[in-house]
Simulated scan of single mutants.
Amino acid sequence: MAIAKQYLKTKPVCKVTFTVPAEEAKKVAVVGDFNNWKATKASALKKLKNGTFKGTLELPKEGSFEFKYIIDGNYVNEESADRYQYNEYAGSENAVLDL
């Protein structure tokens, strides 16, 4: 798993590219407090020929966002997150993205 950040000079956003190796998976989405934890078309990652899922979201600069991946219905944390934060509602740690 990997995250790539690209800060834009012309807009107050950061393009964040999420890459998830999940050859056996049928669906992968990224959900978090930036999209009310809802898996939508915009948060779905596209499966590439090599079995990796990839997608890019534009998120506001200078923010922190809790998130997880949904891989075939299972919530999974990003291994290379900026940090992790315990979430009482979920009863587990969420990955955190600091922009």
Rank of each mutant, 00 (worst) to 15 (best):
M1V: 06
A2H: 04
I3R: 12
I3N: 04
A4I: 11
A4W: 02
Q6P: 02
Q6L: 12
Q6A: 14
Y7L: 14
L8M: 12
L8A: 10
K9E: 13
K11P: 02
K11A: 14
P12F: 04
V13G: 02
V13L: 15
C14D: 07
K15F: 07
K15G: 04
V16R: 01
V16K: 01
T17F: 08
T17E: 13
F18C: 02
T19R: 03
T19A: 09
V20H: 00
V20K: 00
P21A: 02
P21N: 03
A22W: 00
A22C: 02
A22L: 01
E23N: 12
A25Q: 05
K26D: 05
K27C: 08
V28F: 01
V28T: 02
V28W: 00
A29N: 01
V30A: 08
V31Y: 05
V31T: 06
G32C: 10
G32L: 11
D33E: 10
D33F: 06
D33T: 06
D33H: 08
F34I: 10
N35K: 08
N35H: 03
N36D: 15
K38V: 11
K38Y: 06
A39R: 03
T40Y: 05
K41Q: 15
A42I: 05
A42S: 13
S43H: 03
S43T: 15
A44Q: 15
A44W: 02
L45D: 04
L45G: 10
L45K: 04
L45N: 07
K46A: 15
K46R: 11
K47W: 04
L48D: 11
K49T: 11
N50L: 13
N50T: 09
F53C: 09
K54Q: 14
G55P: 04
T56E: 14
T56V: 05
T56P: 04
L57V: 01
E58C: 09
L59D: 03
L59C: 08
L59M: 06
K61Y: 04
K61E: 11
G63K: 13
G63E: 12
G63N: 09
G63D: 04
S64M: 12
S64H: 13
S64V: 10
F65Q: 05
F65W: 13
E66Q: 15
E66M: 12
F67I: 10
F67H: 08
F67D: 00
F67W: 11
F67T: 02
Y69T: 01
Y69P: 00
Y69N: 00
I70N: 00
I70G: 00
I70C: 01
I70A: 00
I71Q: 00
D72M: 03
Y75W: 07
Y75D: 09
E78V: 03
E78A: 14
E79I: 08
S80F: 09
S80T: 12
S80L: 08
A81F: 02
D82P: 02
D82L: 10
R83C: 14
Y84T: 13
Y84P: 11
Y84V: 11
Q85G: 09
Y86V: 09
Y86E: 08
G91W: 07
G91H: 09
G91C: 08
S92I: 05
E93C: 11
E93F: 12
N94K: 11
V96Q: 13
V96T: 13
L97M: 14
D98F: 03
D98E: 15
D98Y: 04
L99R: 08
L99T: 13
